[in-house]
Structure formats: structure tokens, C-alpha cells
Design a protein around this nucleic acid. Structure first.
Lengths: 112, 112
DNA sequence: AAGTATCATTGTATAAATACGATTAAGAAT
DNA sequence: ATTCTTAATCGTATTTATACAATGATACTT
């Protein structure tokens, strides 16, 4: 613990951790997959594809919204969800940058 | 909840969620970055770069080992850690596959 | 042998994540 | 108007994650 708490992590690392967390539950990965197969989905349709109750799915949807990965449009009584492509691209960009920063250093074989 | 609990998620989705979870804490991302800068690092050196106590760092190291992302070599009293490149490549592969499965469908502009 | 250094493990406290029943709110249908 | 549908939110229980002091274990130093 040689580093002070407040200047410990760069914004990029914090952003990557947050976005990785959004992907750290299988239901949330599946939601993103579902939303690209059909671009607008109601909550009910998403619930029908998952082994989770409606309130739990709503909670995961909210987390994905907070992460900026999906958005919601109100259509009468129902909510239509869709992917925020810009933010999804941002995730892939961060992981790709991380990879190309690291992988050129990759040794011929693993050390262990 | 129309899907039965046991057949809910594919192995690929579960694997991706687990690996994303490994990246979901800034300390763990930094550890991987540190380990590629200098390929072998002692626990003490890693602790010196993070705002966390030695036991907490040890715990994060263990989680990364369980995820298969790093490995440990014992050298006398000290532990040397290094990246498991194969597994790191696996992470990037999963995210890239996910991207190329999804992004061709990307519409010209966001829906919201 | 006694002391020191390194680091994993244990125990434990606190916070965050996960899950769901119950409720609420708002629109749609009758 | 009343009932039904849809989905968010609330309340709460349970599990998991995070953090660290204390301890234990192993090797190194003197």
C-alpha cells in the first residue's frame, strides 16, 4: 500500500473496470445479445428468455443503462430497450487497446 | 422467467462473464498491466504499486489465478507472478468474437 | 538458534451484488 | 369505471466481494 488512495487508479482503468463489471453477469451478456438480434425488445420479452423474475431483469436492465450500454424508450405501457452502440464500441475499443498495449510483449511461451 | 435455471446460459456466456468479472476491479486490471511491464513481479512489488494492503493484494492475486490469468512461481521466500498469456488471449478472443457477431448489425445511428 | 523478510491464510467486518415477493403507477382493454 | 397488462420500484433476504489486522509458514540472515 505505497500509493495514496485517491490517486491510485487512472480514469481509463476505472472506466474499464466499470464496463467489465457490466459484463460480469451472464444475464447481462445475454440481454445485450438479445437486443442486437432484435433491436427493440420489451422487458417482458427479455424476461421470457432468462431464468430470472421480472424485478430481477428490470434491475439488470437498470445496471446496463447506468453503464450506458442500453437505452429505454417508453411506448405506452411498455418499455422498449435497445443497445447503445457507441458505448458498446467503447468497450471493445478499451479491450483492444489493452490488448495491443500488452500483446506485443508476449513471450514465445508461457513462463509456468 | 420462462427459461429453466439449469439450461439458462451457454458455457461461452458463463466463461465470458467469469473473465469479465476478473477485470471488474481496477486493482486486478493494474496487476495485469504491471505483470506485462516486467514479466516477473514479487507480491511486495505489486503491493508497492497499489493502494491496498498486502493481504488484499494477495486475495486479488488469488482471484486472478483462479481465473487462469496469472500464475505463481515460488522462489525461496518470495512468490513471482506472471501473466498466463494463453488465457489473456482467450479473453480478447471472446470479446472480439462477441464484437464481430454483433457489430455488423450496427445501425447507422443510435435509436435513442 | 534467533531474528528478519516475504507472503499466504485466517478471521472478521462492511459493503455491494443478486434475487424475488409485494406494491405501485400508468396505459390499454373491456 | 373497472379490470388487465406492463414494468418500475420498494423492501428484504441471501450471497458474494472487498478490505485489513493478526497469524502462520517458509526461507533467508546473522
Amino acid at each position: 500500500m505505497a500509493i495514496r488512495k485517491n490517486e491510485a487508479y487512472t480514469n481509463k482503468v476505472l472506466e474499464m473496470a466499470d464496463l467489465a463489471k457490466a459484463f460480469s453477469h451472464p444475464a447481462r451478456i445475454m440481454i445485450i445479445e438479445l437486443l442486437f438480434k432484435h433491436k427493440d425488445r420489451t422487458c417482458k420479452e427479455i424476461v421470457a428468455e432468462l431464468p430470472l423474475s421480472q424485478p430481477t431483469v428490470s434491475q439488470h436492465l437498470k445496471e446496463l443503462m447506468v453503464a450506458g450500454l442500453i437505452c429505454r424508450k417508453q411506448f405506452g405501457a411498455q418499455s422498449l430497450y435497445c443497445v447503445e452502440w457507441n458505448q458498446l464500441e467503447r468497450v471493445f475499443l478499451l479491450f483492444e487497446r489493452f490488448k495491443y498495449k500488452i500483446m506485443p510483449e508476449r513471450p514465445k511461451r508461457n513462463c509456468c
